[in-house]
């Protein structure tokens, strides 16, 4: 485990030390991935975009003035890339057949849950992912999203309720079919 500070590592990166960047990637990958997952709601896309963000960070690292802000900076890059990706994806909607094929490949239960998570609005999915995946408590979520403590609780609560609604609605749709 490398215990050098982020700012030391950023400095080393600027001088061309890629090993130092690899340490930064390992240290912050999880967080970046969680953010992408929160925004995108899809594991594969989140992995792609998290990787893109890390690559972009390497190219742009000289632009980063204060090394101790690496985490906030790389998260911002990841967020922007995720939003860009969503915009692009919105224009190219998958065909119905394609969706069905994917559904058949996975276990029904997990698939339903994944679909439901994906259908949640981003503002609810992000705190939900922070809570269940990142194992953050409401206080930390509130701080990171820059909202009040009660606001964070409210979001998780609403996310759970919406998710329940999505899952039960889906069940009813299928029964009707």
């Amino acid at each position: 485990m490398d215990d050098r500070l982020d700012e030391t590592l950023v400095c080393a990166c600027k001088q061309g030390d890629t090993d130092a960047y690899a340490v930064l990637v390992k240290r912050h990958y999880r967080h970046v991935f969680a953010l992408c997952l929160g925004v995108l709601g899809n594991v594969h896309d989140a992995e792609d975009i998290a990787q893109d963000a890390m690559l972009k960070g390497l190219v742009k690292i000289k632009k980063l003035g204060r090394g101790e802000q690496f985490e906030a900076w790389i998260l911002q890059i990841a967020k922007n890339l995720s939003i860009d990706f969503l915009r692009r994806r919105r224009r190219v909607k998958p065909l119905a057949g394609e969706q069905l094929m994917q559904a058949g490949q996975r276990s029904q239960e997990n698939h339903e849950l994944e679909q439901a998570v994906r259908r949640l609005p981003g503002e609810l999915r992000i705190p939900l992912v922070m809570y269940y995946f990142d194992k953050k408590n409401a206080k930390t979520i509130a701080e990171e999203l820059n909202i009040s403590h009660s606001g964070a609780c409210q979001k998780i609560r609403t996310a759970r309720k919406e998710l329940h609604k999505l899952l039960t609605e889906r069940g009813q749709d299928e029964q009707r079919m």
Partner: peptide, 23 residues
């Protein structure tokens, strides 16, 4: 939900390695 995210968690180190390799 816990189970779902735990499954995603399971491949975290693999994902991280792939990112480092890409770098």
């Amino acid at each position: 939900l816990t189970e779902f995210f735990a499954k995603i968690e399971a491949d975290m180190s693999g994902r991280q390695e792939r990112a480092v390799k890409a770098i």
